[in-house]
Write a protein that binds this DNA or RNA. Sequence first.
DNA 1: CGCATAATTGATGGTTATCAAGACCAGTGG
DNA 2: CCACTGGTCTTGATAACCATCAATTATGCG
Lengths: 247, 247
Amino acid sequence: MTIPEKSCLVQKLSHYVDLTELSRKQLMSLEETEREFGKHAEVYRSGDRNDRLYVVKRGWLYSYTDLPDGRRQIVKIHHPGDIIGFPDIAFDTATTTLQTSEQACLCPFSKSALELIFQRSPQLTALMFSLAVRDQAIMIDALRAMGRMSAREKLAHLLLDLISRLRISNKNLTDTLRLPLNQFEIGDAVGLTNVYVSKTLIVLEREGFIRRRGDEIQLLKEQALAQLVDFSDRHHAMDTSWFPNAS
Amino acid sequence: MTIPEKSCLVQKLSHYVDLTELSRKQLMSLEETEREFGKHAEVYRSGDRNDRLYVVKRGWLYSYTDLPDGRRQIVKIHHPGDIIGFPDIAFDTATTTLQTSEQACLCPFSKSALELIFQRSPQLTALMFSLAVRDQAIMIDALRAMGRMSAREKLAHLLLDLISRLRISNKNLTDTLRLPLNQFEIGDAVGLTNVYVSKTLIVLEREGFIRRRGDEIQLLKEQALAQLVDFSDRHHAMDTSWFPNAS
DNA sequence: CGCATAATTGATGGTTATCAAGACCAGTGG
DNA sequence: CCACTGGTCTTGATAACCATCAATTATGCG
């Protein structure tokens, strides 16, 4: 059989377990369809019927909710290899709005594709389950940041979270990340205004924690930053010991 | 066979789907062991090895994380019938600390009990999955509240969330809920100080939104409150249409 | 009644929002 | 080559909101 182009989903999940041939095929089947989106395009909107999930093939996106008066909260930033839509799976309409932050390519697949996975592959089921709930742990960290951290700490936390996520699928990432978000978007992600994001990033830069060039950010003292916010990497290690054996 | 005492887990899940006899038995088996805890007892601590989950049989508990300097964030309040521990399932150590807010009774069960469920009951798997990810949707709402709401709105949101959750397992709940949390704990749940919680609750009371008597809170204008924070009930409706048929 | 815990009150200050203006930059068309 | 444009970032002044601290009052319990 022909091997299709490398799937970032398979690549990312392989980081955690040795996928069986069956699992691999099932994952590939999720990426059969492709759709292309321009910058700041809306993929779906809160309240839309949602019978689909999405695999990110290329580009950054984010999910947000807003209040009637326009205040906005970005609740999750999505990267290539991510599966989008787990939090909405329990509802018949979407709870968030999904938007691209730059040109992006998505692979939609239907909820019922999960049904197949649940019936046939306990290994993949456990892995999906773990991924879904790990996102929850990450959201817990975000909640802690939003509730109890200063602006400076919030931004430090965001940067650490992003770089540790990007390292999963891009092993040779060093200390620099591309951040294709403007300061309104950064503010909406951490609960600050664009103005204060600007001021705080300048502070972090003056303190020697980061350096900025265009849309790239270099973390100069990652250890110190991690200590500052008591950061723990939820992405690298995952407990797969309880997984069913490939059957 | 003998029918054991009513399980609040079975009761709660029955709200969403007709459980097969197999599913029911598997759920019951999760509640075989019981452990009793006093007020403000610690069940497990962040960093502990975690090979277990818990079903809440009685009493309120909460999970929190803290920063090195003592700031604390309560990330989830647990009620009878809840399953505690999904967010930690992907890790080998607990990411949060679990504490009772009053006398409570828990039923611990091992992670590998889930393995059995994954292998034997696609229906229950889908339901567990839905429960786990619905918690995520609820946390998204909390994140929005923490990031973009005023103190008054945050507290309104908390009360609405709590009462709509309690209504699932207690159908004849009216407009009054018992809130066994002190104002430090309330503050840690919404990202405020105990002092400002006090002041803000007084404002809500003066505005006629709530009435307080002891540890009970009555929501006098629930509609208005819901509109104030653009609240949507994540607890009542759940999309089960995509679930595998009981096999 | 006396003690501990929890809630309230008031004074003050810090952090962040808000508003408005200006600087920078890349792309566009004259 | 240069003005023009829209988007983004920066800067400064002011104000709102909430934290902090400390003292007092209420509540519950042995």
